Computed example of a mutant assay.
Amino acid sequence: MSKKPIYDQSWRLLGYNDEKEDGSGTVYDSMFSVRGYVQPSYGNSSSVTDALFGYRGSIQQSFNGTLVGYDANFQVVGYYDPQTDCTYDATYQFVGHGNLLPWLISRG
C-alpha cells in the first residue's frame, strides 16, 4: 500500500491519499487516522464516505476532464485539474497540489 502525501499551498502536510487502480481509496490525516473512503460509483462518479461509512459527498468528472467535488447536499466544495495537478476550492482559490477533493469533502 503506497500512501501519497497531501500538501496545502504552503507545502504543509495535511494527510495521505491511498488510491488504488480501480478508483477506490482511503484518505488519512497526518497522524494516519482514517478520514474517509472513496468508492467508484456509476459512470464518471465516485462516492466519498467518512471513517464510519457515512455518506459525505461525491466526485464527478466534467466534460473537460476536471474533477468536481460535491458535499452531501450536492454543493460544490472544490475542483481538481489533472493537467496542472492542482486543487481549488469552490471559489477557485488554490488549495494545494495533487487531488485533494476527497480530503476537502471528508473534512466538512
Rank of each mutant, 00 (worst) to 15 (best):
G57Y: 05
F63L: 11
L52H: 08
N99P: 11
A51V: 06
V38E: 07
N99Q: 05
Q9P: 01
S46L: 00
Y70I: 05
S33I: 00
Y16Q: 03
P82A: 08
S47D: 15
H97E: 05
W103T: 00
L67G: 03
R12W: 11
A51K: 12
V27F: 05
G36R: 03
T49S: 14
F53C: 00
M1K: 15
V38M: 06
R56T: 00
Q75E: 11
I6D: 09
P102V: 06
L14G: 10
L67D: 15
S41Y: 13
S106K: 00
W103S: 02
L13F: 02
Y28P: 10
Y80A: 05
T26Q: 07
D89G: 00
L104S: 04
S46F: 00
H97C: 08
D85M: 07
L52D: 05
S45L: 03
K4T: 08
V68G: 04
D22Y: 09
V68K: 10
Q61K: 13
G36L: 01
Q39F: 15
Y70Q: 03
S62Q: 12
G96Q: 12
Q83F: 11
G57F: 02
Q9Y: 12
Y79T: 04
L101K: 09
A51R: 13
N44R: 07
Y16P: 01
Q60W: 03
P40T: 10
S47M: 09
V38G: 01
V95K: 12
S24G: 14
R107L: 08
G57T: 08
Y37H: 12
V68D: 01
L52F: 01
P40V: 10
L13E: 06
I6H: 06
Y7E: 02
F74L: 11
Y80M: 06
W103Y: 15
F74C: 04
E21I: 12
S62G: 12
Q39N: 15
F74I: 06
Q93S: 14
G25C: 08
R12V: 05
S33Q: 14
S62E: 11
R107W: 02
S47W: 12
V38K: 10
L52W: 03
Q61V: 14
Q83A: 10
V68F: 02
G54V: 02
Y42Q: 08
N99F: 06
G57K: 03
I6N: 14
Y42S: 09
Q9I: 07
G78K: 03
K3M: 11
N73F: 07
Y28D: 06
S62F: 04
Q75P: 00
D85N: 14
V68M: 07
F53N: 10
V95Y: 11
G54H: 06
L67S: 15
L100R: 13
S46E: 04
T66Q: 14
S106T: 14
Q75F: 04
Q61Y: 07
T26R: 12
N17M: 08
D22E: 09
V34T: 10
S46A: 11
S47E: 15
M1T: 11
N64G: 05
D81M: 09
R12A: 13
Q61T: 15
Y88I: 04
V77I: 04
F53T: 02
D85T: 06
A51C: 07
C86A: 11
G108H: 15
